[in-house]
Nucleic acid binder design. Structure first.
Length: 150
DNA sequence: GCCAACGTTGGC
DNA sequence: GCCAACGTTGGC
């Protein structure tokens, strides 16, 4: 799950009293479908910092509420407001996540690219701009192993 | 349904 | 700031 740290970083999540946030603001249909249909309570996700000096994986979050309508789409004051979404026919979805772990060191995009076994990872594929992406079990394990000892 | 124009993402 | 690689919009 990607976030621009200037907008919302893993430290922002840690600083939240309950260390919980709604992952609102996703406005892409493919990513929406994952939020709505696939992501389950108990799922773990990497928290990825994008559009920053050193992009990469900052830590891990756990899903504590599966897909439900993203009400920021109905909020006129929100930067995520979408006039085409209504309460009756919500267009966008979100999930709630809780902080699980922050890596001692960020696992940079460069570092991920240097690992041959991760070559097929969706995150590393050319032109991929999705903010929510599946991670395969073996990819998860490889990345998690890097963090052992970090 | 096609596709040109435009907008967005995100690494560099 | 640049630009590749998308996604979206809207006229036809």
């Amino acid at each position: 799950m990607k976030s621009e740290p200037d907008a919302f970083s893993i430290d922002d999540l840690i600083n939240h009293p309950q260390k919980v946030t709604s992952w609102e603001g996703v406005r892409n249909y493919q990513a929406r479908n994952m939020l709505r249909d696939q992501i389950q309570v108990g799922d773990l996700a990497f928290f990825y910092h994008s559009s920053t000096d050193i992009p990469g994986i900052a830590g891990i979050v756990e899903v504590i509420r599966s897909g439900y309508p993203d009400v920021s789409a109905l909020d006129l004051q929100s930067e995520y407001y979408d006039p085409k979404s209504t309460a009756k026919h919500p267009r966008w979805y979100t999930v709630d996540v809780r902080f699980k772990k922050k890596f001692q060191q960020l696992i940079s995009l460069n570092q991920l690219r240097s690992i041959p076994a991760l070559a097929d990872m969706q995150l590393l594929k050319k032109g991929n701009r999705l903010s929510i992406m599946a991670v395969k079990p073996n990819e998860w394990q490889i990345i998690n192993n890097i963090t052992i000892g970090l």
